[in-house]
Design a protein around this nucleic acid. Sequence first.
RNA 1: GGCCCGUUCGUCUAGAGGCCUAGGACAUCAGAUUCUCAUUCUGAAGAUCAGGGGUUCGAAUCCCCUACGGGCUACCA
Length: 501
Amino acid sequence: MLKRETAKLLKPMTTSDSATVKNSIRVRMAPSPTGSFHVGSARTALFNYLFARHVSGQFILRVEDTDMQRNDAAYEQVIYEAMEWLGLHSDENPLSGGPYGPYRQSERFDLYREYAQQLVASGAAYPAYETADELAAMKAEQAANKLPPRYNGAHRDLTAEQRAAFEAAGRKAVLRFRVPEGEIAWDDVVRGRVAWQSKEIDDFVIQKSDTTPTYNFACVVDDHLMQVSDVIRGEDGLSNTPRQIMLYQALGFEVPKFAHLPFLLGRDRSKLSKRHGPVSLLDFRDQGILPEAMFNYLSLLGWNPGEGETQEIFTREELIQRFTLENVNKAGAIFDVEKLHWMNTQYLKQMPIARFIELARPYLLEAVPDLQAEDAYTQQAINMARERIHGIADIKDAATYFFSDNYTVDETGAAKHLTNVSKPRLEQLRQRFEALSEWNHDSIENAIRTLATDLNIKPAELIHPVRMAVSGRTVGPSVFELLAVLGRERVLRRLSGVGGR
RNA sequence: GGCCCGUUCGUCUAGAGGCCUAGGACAUCAGAUUCUCAUUCUGAAGAUCAGGGGUUCGAAUCCCCUACGGGCUACCA
């Protein structure tokens, strides 16, 4: 209901109106460097990016590395590499900095301690001295009695003397948030109104015993300090939201807008994970998926332009122009590699040949060390070869024979097409090619068809052996075009070589 | 277990009470073109809108219940 009204209210907004909100919209992507960069994270980052660019706001990258156990500096690089590859440029981040830095949580510990102390001072938070064992025992007992596992609030109202006693005994305290009674509700931009009873939530930890913050706490402090206006994140953030809202309120911060994105799912409809196959963004790059194809594909998972639009291929600019949170779906979407591949080929086919060669170069270089990218021959050859590949990595196999005589030969195909019957015919064809005054598609076709007529055989009986002889394979471009592009010299040489096989 | 979120062709989705005999795309199948493969084009099949109850003259669309799926329930993020 509210969603609809919001959409209507936003519609009549003029350019000058949106210029007014400019700069006040700030969103952030906050990954933690604990491994590879998941496509699900990429999709979340993408929606943040699209939203920010659409409203001319700021897109921030913040690294959430508060878990000293699991973090690794090398993983932070993975984040940058992945974001860079997808073309998700952030306005503020740990590397280039910005007005609200630092952008790495491990460099902001003092800040969190300060705010945590503020909550203790106001009575909104308190130290709790239970040991891990005591907590475990408490949970076990609750489980035995079929009660929900929840902190029982034992240290909620310790006296100063009791606290001093624990301290004297050498116990370290965590800081727990004193959850107030009542209902917490918000209007989620993608889900509508979501409400929670605070009695469902126990007094959660905001500062660990080593004085570092927990996720929920650091997140709130940072989002506020970094002036984040719209929190766009995965739906696993849904159940954290009431905790965070209580924190915003206790701290006296303004509560941002929340938008919870549906998950990316695996084939079995559970949250997409390694079990489902490669899920790291960079894995797809390594498989030859183009960043623009991934960008396009991901944008359509859980979002669509609406209004009956049937277009599927969009440029980055079109996506930025059309993206709105109102059109984000609520239900999770299965990550379907088949469609990704289809989209990839769309981009592969229509991209400028120069760019294609640039992307293909690393694969080609393995077989063709002296590749000349600007060469007209190279461009023609690659252009022809790319017609039938599905991933850029396939180009090596599909194009090597254009440049080198040292290509792999399909032996099964050779046995079939290069026989004692066809070899003499190929020699005759070679002679006719040699005698041709012009070397082009039509003259070649004419020569082949004429010879076929003279020999009283079907053209196909020449065509297949020729392709085999000059490319080493049974499939590929039209033979006439293929020969024309390869050039007479190369063709004659390879036809001569056939006799020796 | 408790709480929260979700449910339209196999998959991604359109759908904002009558335009829905539910539209598009991927995948599938068939045909056309053809020297192969790929492309391209044409066509087919595929969803009683999770199920049940309401509200309404009329429901995929609004309400309720059920089922199923997912998430959260850490001194992880």
